[in-house]
Write a protein that binds this DNA or RNA. Structure first.
Lengths: 336, 336
DNA sequence: TTGAAAGCGCTAACAC
DNA sequence: GTGTTAGCGCTTTCAA
């Protein structure tokens, strides 16, 4: 910058002004400086600017695993939203393990970022004090904590009630749930099971605990395993509500291996509307949670907090959802 | 740091020495400083350190789209490998568009990172001069450029020859290829098609250009579209070699919609061994490209370049591959 | 083995 | 409108 100033015959401050688009610079000066910048191939040193401004231009995104399609798609959306706001995104993987989530919340990386978007899965709902951090934070998921933190989520109860109602409207009565967390007091799984029960109650369908299958991690393989268990236990069911699409993809595979036809014998609906859900055989009915909207909202909120002009009160936003019926509940839809 | 020095009654330099594990510090001093650090809750300011050292502790990873399962899994592996080396990973999406790849190569973000791992897809093989950059760079993919840059890839020709031979060994003769790039002089697609032709030639199977289906982007939907095209053109085929798994997942779906049985009527094999490939119906035969090995090698090479202790010559490494036969070529394998 | 002082490249405050 | 100066928090000479 000093060299540029010398080349242009102005002070270092003027160069800074030009680089930062400070309005009160004479066009002539500006032109001269820009010339010099071009000639010398000058580029501002971001690190120095950050040091001076106490900002890094980076925000963190902490999720369990980026290789899970839902989080990959979320990361994509967050990176795009960040771009709009002029920040880059540093992704951290927690594997949904409590200690690694705490590390994400308190570790050295928090110093490299101006704020964090965090999807907590391993933290207990009694550990809210961990969320009282001294940097801007936005949580993804239901307000399971009492901590005064911004939350962005979707209407889990209403959405899963709608998904269950879709199955009921098709005449299904024995609807299994995959991925429940009965050991949790409050989390996404709990809320989605609540929506399921509401739908059952409204339709006058008796609740059978044997149909509620629990597993902590919502992966393809655990979805398959839960189906295997039900089959070997001899639990009868004519529909499956998987609490996310990875579970439902695993379930689909297991049902096929057990010779059960989808949807003739068993209808199945998932949650998340990952891209793969449209390409399974049969294609997967699911709930679209408005991932892009969630990402944009979260980034916008975080940027407001970073700029220091958010409201005093923590905010709570629910993105719109949509039930997407496909072949796994409706049957063969014919050539695309 | 100044406060810590004051608290411990030592100079700021001693604090720095302690923080950086400089060996020649008297245990007594060290203890006193550590006490003060604990008491004051001090943490080094990474930005300041970076400014001083000219390092950022960040490496870039530029891929087309993180929401494509292969790149999501690659990113996962690179983040893990980076962790081993004490660096974080900044992911950039180029959408395989030339201008965005150039932006990734030359943009402002290159200033926030110490080096870049880059998977070029949009750049022409005649634009090697763009790769003559002044920072550490490792390319993912074949050495399609003459630029003196480290490359990490897999044995595309040999691997796709092996995949094709697998189909041939099953008695298939009319093997379609999905995702060719006939307009390219040299890229991954060209190499994989070369392996295909080698296998055909070795088996004495005539080459039919009508079976080579071209599409730039290897997505699920383009895979489906290519199958649709072949069917509507009346091109007969008894096997499909999709140049990646996304294409093969799309193809699988399209074949189903056209009422063609897999593998009875059409066997199909993909490339990448993404996690989903094991969960489709039927499960997808594919080629495992050693993604973890590629990621680790690339990060290690990059870190060597950053440290300035790599060889003068550019390196070229090929990861080991493995053909993974599943139901889409072998037929129903029975319950897991 | 430790301390003092300079300076990484930039922006903010203030003076001109 | 533009220049001067101080200093962000750290590491790195160099001297003690």
């Amino acid at each position: 910058m000093r060299e540029v100033a010398a080349e242009a015959g102005v002070s270092i401050k003027t160069v800074s002004n030009v680089v930062n688009d400070y309005p009160h610079v004479r066009p002539e000066m500006r032109a001269r400086v820009e010339q010099a910048i071009l000639k010398l191939g000058y580029r501002v040193n971001v690190t120095a600017r950050n040091l001076r401004q106490g900002r890094t231009g980076l925000i963190g995104l902490a999720v369990s695993e980026i290789s899970l399609p839902y989080f990959a798609e979320l990361a994509d959306a967050v990176i795009r939203a960040g771009q709009e706001h002029g920040v880059d995104v540093l992704i951290e993987q927690t594997a949904a393990v409590r200690d690694r989530e705490i590390e994400a919340l308190t570790g050295a990386r928090r110093q490299m970022t101006d704020g964090l978007i965090f999807s907590p899965l391993g933290l207990g709902s009694d550990e809210q004090d961990l969320l009282e951090v001294d940097y801007p934070l936005v949580l993804l998921g239901e307000r399971i904590f009492d901590a005064p933190v911004d939350h962005v989520t979707m209407s889990n109860v209403v959405a899963s009630r709608a998904a269950t109602e879709h199955l009921i409207s098709l005449g299904r009565r024995r609807i299994a749930v995959l991925g429940a967390h009965p050991w949790e007091q409050m989390d996404t799984a709990v809320l989605r099971v609540r929506g399921y029960r509401e739908a059952l109650d409204a339709a006058g369908i008796p609740f059978d605990p044997a149909l509620i299958r629990s597993v902590k991690l919502w992966h393809r393989e655990t979805g398959a395993r839960l189906i295997d268990e039900m089959v070997s236990e001899g639990v009868g069911f004519d529909a499956v509500f998987a609490l996310n699409d990875a579970l439902s993809i695993g379930a689909l595979r297991a049902l096929y291996l057990h010779g059960m036809r989808v949807p003739e014998d068993v209808a199945i609906i998932g949650f998340d509307d990952v891209q793969d859900a449209a390409y399974t055989t049969p294609s997967l009915s699911t709930v679209s949670p408005g991932t892009a909207e969630i990402a944009e909202t979260a980034v916008t909120m975080l940027m407001e907090r970073i700029a220091g002009n958010g409201p005093t009160q923590p905010r709570y936003v629910e993105a719109a959802f949509q039930v997407i019926p496909r072949e796994s509940t409706l049957g063969r839809l014919g050539p695309a």
